[in-house]
């Protein structure tokens, strides 16, 4: 089923996607993880990628950042081919990532973590961006001098997102922002993402297992199975599809 057309979304989008993946294949050693993936993320969109464990979602996120590198296919960001760029140079192109497992700097304070996030940003923005983060996640201001490792899971996720945002990205990649969080915190995080998208026109590409929340939030979604995109459409369309419902929303009952 190649339901590639999503009329509502396409009308809004321009011709060139902000991030485009064409036939991307990635391997771990000799094991193939991505078997030729095509994905487009247009400016100002929220795009969700859903799929089961081991489908290759996180690999895709990391491949966009060049680790593991795409062995075949092209990755284009803002008109520039980034397939073969080293990870740190990709980060300088204003793509930011809140990686899987949050990966905050545990022994460094919240403020230092945010400083690290601003590595690629103009130093003059720092104070202003810090205020923006406090407005978005007031908890971080309370915890400013606490060590990252002593934060709760939800606070760590907020920190991971805020750290990524300190780079003033055009595109934010989020890898399972809801992982291991209580429903109320998941809502808080997803509200923050929606807010960023509406107010600051931030483009967001997120990977989620929590399909219901992700598809409700997203303009468009992709479903990944075994390293391949099997379905695509608007968030609402995907939510309505029986195969998505049975595989990702109704759990073991399918």
């Amino acid at each position: 089923m190649s339901a590639a057309s999503a009329p509502a979304a396409e009308a809004v989008q321009g011709s060139e996607p902000l991030l485009g993946l064409r036939g991307v294949k990635a391997f771990y050693g000799s094991i193939i993880a991505l078997k030729g993936v095509d994905i487009d993320v247009y400016d100002g969109e929220i795009v969700a990628l859903i799929g089961a464990n081991g489908a290759g979602k996180s690999t895709l996120m990391m491949t966009i950042f060049g680790n593991p590198r795409a062995r075949e296919g092209r990755i284009v960001f803002a008109g520039r081919d980034i397939t073969d760029l080293p990870t740190h140079e990709i980060a300088h192109l204003r793509i930011a990532q809140a990686p899987e497992g949050r990966r905050i700097f545990a022994r460094m304070s919240v403020l230092e973590n945010l400083q690290m996030g601003a590595t690629t940003a103009e130093p003059t923005h720092f104070a202003e961006d810090l205020e923006r983060m406090f407005a978005l996640f007031p908890r971080l201001q309370e915890r400013l001098h606490q060590r990252g490792g002593t934060l709760s899971g939800g606070e760590q996720q907020m920190l991971a997102i805020a750290r990524a945002l300190m780079a003033r990205p055009r595109l934010l990649l989020l890898d399972e922002p809801s992982l291991g969080l209580a429903p109320v915190l998941v809502k808080q995080i997803f509200d923050a993402i929606r807010q960023l998208n509406r107010r600051e026109k931030l483009t967001v590409f997120l990977v989620e297992q929590n399909a219901f929340h992700a598809l409700k939030l997203a303009n468009r979604g992709y479903v990944m199975v075994n390293g391949l995109i099997t379905l695509t459409g608007t968030g609402r369309e995907l939510l309505a599809r029986p195969e998505v419902r049975s595989a990702y929303l109704e759990g073991g009952r399918a």
């Binding site: 980060a91 930011a96 990966r103 230092e112 690290m116 590595t119 690629t120």
Partner: peptide, 24 residues
């Protein structure tokens, strides 16, 4: 200075460092 902070961040998590744009 940024370089010292980068050293400490490197000790904490090398992958995160790279994705934040630090040339490890």
């Amino acid at each position: 200075l940024p370089i010292g902070r980068a050293w400490e961040a490197l000790r904490e998590d090398e992958i995160a460092c790279r994705s934040l744009g630090i040339n490890t």
